[in-house]
Simulated assay, not measured.
Amino acid sequence: MSARIGVITFPGTLDDVDAARAVRLAGAEAVNLWHGDADLKGVDAVVVPGGFSYGDYLRCGAIAKFAPVMGEVITAARAGLPVLGICNGFQVLCEAGLLPGALTRNAGLHFICRDVWLRVDSITSAWTSRYESGAELLVPLKSGEGRYVASEAVLDELEGEGRVVFRYAENLNGSMRDIAGISSANGRVVGLMPHPEHATEALTGPSDDGLGIFYSALDAVLAAS
């Protein structure tokens, strides 16, 4: 069985091609999903990629959550479909209510474009099973509104349930509790601010550390088939 992983394109998306390439490098079929189509084309998982969906007007991801394709993603995610949100995709998933909290302006109010080290804190999600707990990944971070915030009660819940998936080794954007990525309660939906799709080959990225995220999704799909 060849897994089929959908990659959404919104107006303003700019990392969909890279995400599709990462999917193919992991050995899956990349399926293009258009924001205006309420059709997931029978995919086994979905990536909501980075960029500036709908120009990031209002708030980042606030308009994208109303796209016809996102209505299908929300329904499918609640039924267990693995979904990954990267950068703007993370913002979209928070706006859509699939993940708690919000992404706000970076501490210092500057856009950050740096390779950063992440620590893997949870390997029980559908997108992190290929890693060892405590593994360190080198991936690019490029965002102006990447500071993760949530109430203390939500943060405690995330910590207590093991849903903090990635943490920054150096917290450049001021995210609460160094959080770089989180998961849903069932571990099927993951959002992270740095870009694993830009770290899939040592030749073109700072590392190939991000590829494990996409391999993990393949494992989750095959395990469910």
Rank of each mutant, 00 (worst) to 15 (best):
C94P: 01
I123F: 09
H110Q: 14
L109C: 10
C113Y: 07
T124H: 15
A96T: 00
E132D: 12
L118Q: 02
L93I: 10
A107F: 10
S122L: 09
R119C: 02
S143V: 14
L138E: 09
R114V: 06
S151P: 03
A150Y: 03
L118C: 06
A150M: 07
S133M: 12
E145P: 09
T104D: 03
A126E: 06
V120Y: 02
E136S: 12
G144M: 07
G97S: 03
L141C: 04
D115V: 11
T128Y: 13
L141P: 00
E152V: 02
S122M: 09
R130I: 08
G144D: 02
V149Q: 10
L109F: 14
L103G: 04
D115F: 06
N106F: 07
S129Q: 15
L98C: 01
E95R: 00
L93N: 01
G97C: 04
A107H: 07
L155T: 04
W117N: 11
T128H: 11
L137R: 02
L99T: 04
G134F: 03
P140K: 12
E95W: 01
D121Y: 02
S129F: 13
G108M: 05
G146Y: 02
L93A: 02
G97E: 03
D121P: 07
G108R: 09
V149L: 07
W127D: 02
